[in-house]
Design a binder for these strands. Structure first.
Lengths: 200, 200
DNA sequence: GAGGTAACTTACTTACACGTAAGTAGGAAG
DNA sequence: CTTCCTACTTACGTGTAAGTAAGTTACCTC
């Protein structure tokens, strides 16, 4: 149980790696067990051994992705104390994913939402709500401290941030222009940073 | 040739209607000739008669969608003279699509970009570039006339507008919250409207 | 009324893709 | 030494999707 379960976890992790990349690039409906198996030099049946069906695999994918994202947010909180620095770091996560030629896994799944098994739909929702919640806190705190200036509530602005980043990623990727994301980040940040504007 | 070609065009239009809705809701990879045929009470072969293959159908879909969008922009130009009014009207187009439970056809296709036939990828690119070009003109003109105030160039801001609307649509749809799009539109417009802020 | 053509249907092929059942190698455990 | 478990593979079964070929019907034209 000790060593073999480690091996199992390792293979499972390799499967998740391949599947995550494939789904982020081609979408959940545009990827198959066969694609991932081929990449790993395994059979489709081996994938079914680790993830009984596509819905299970999809759920595991979102869970792991969400956990990694949550870890990244914790790391940002530990590293940066100022709200705008946190937001910049948050935006940088998106830039890094785009530079790998990928879409945000959950952004991709959001597009395919209607065709996903309910368990995956729920997991995608949870991912976005968790991100929005973190952003909202950062924005509220930044407002209190006067480094951030909002046009709506922290909740609404948090959604605006996610929407802008996801949309910019979507367009930047399909037009092969990383600058489309970069420039939207710059404008978004300029719109939030206190001192770059004064409300009348 | 006269009547029969009209009938043909009518059936072709019905096919495009059904396919457009299906693709906007389920994605290009999540829809099939069978789905559309079933809805229309036809056979799959009948669809192949009008659109030889899926790539042809997809291209026709984007072309018609792009033409309709272009017409809407012309109508906006005819109806509204002020830049902010044009932008509000532009945003309203997105709201209307979302209220039908659909994603923007090209936003959906942008997500699936990597799996699309090249002819469709090109058509999607053209759609966005055409939109961006119109927005950029509106923003430039609004800036000249002083009703709009930008944080970047008209070109960059035009991309920001599209990115925000597409992303907000994506998230609003997957979370079943139209307010997510509405609130992002409000904040986006407030950020562009002169008089709601003064740059320092 | 004969022939042609537009707009289909029927019936088929080919190709995947999901999922499963059954078997097997190799190591751990008693 | 044998028994059992993990981590696979091989081999199916079933469903579905794209695409095509050949036939059918109704209308239109000469």
């Amino acid at each position: 149980m000790t060593k073999s379960s480690v091996q199992s976890d390792e293979t499972a992790a390799l499967i998740l790696n391949a599947a995550e990349r494939l789904v982020a690039v081609r979408g959940f409906n545009g990827f198959s067990y066969g694609d991932a198996a081929k990449e790993l030099g395994l059979t489709r049946a081996a994938l079914h051994y680790h993830f009984a069906n596509k819905a299970d695999l999809g759920e595991a994918l979102i869970t792991r992705y969400g956990d990694r994202f949550a870890d990244a947010l914790v790391a940002i909180d530990a590293r940066e104390s100022e709200a705008m620095a946190k937001l910049e770091a948050y935006a940088k996560l998106y830039l890094e994913v785009l530079r790998e030629g990928r879409m945000c896994l959950c952004g991709m799944l959001a597009a395919e939402n209607e065709t996903l098994p309910p368990s995956m739909q729920d997991a995608v929702s949870r991912f976005f709500i968790s991100n929005q919640s973190w952003l909202s806190s950062v924005l509220a705190r930044g407002t209190e401290l006067g480094t951030v200036e909002l046009r709506g509530s922290p909740d609404e602005t948090a959604w605006l941030v996610i929407n802008t980043l996801e949309g910019a990623m979507l367009l930047a990727r399909s037009l092969h222009e990383v600058a489309i994301l970069q420039s939207s980040i710059d404008q978004l940040m300029a719109g939030l940073r206190r001192g770059t504007r004064v409300d009348v």
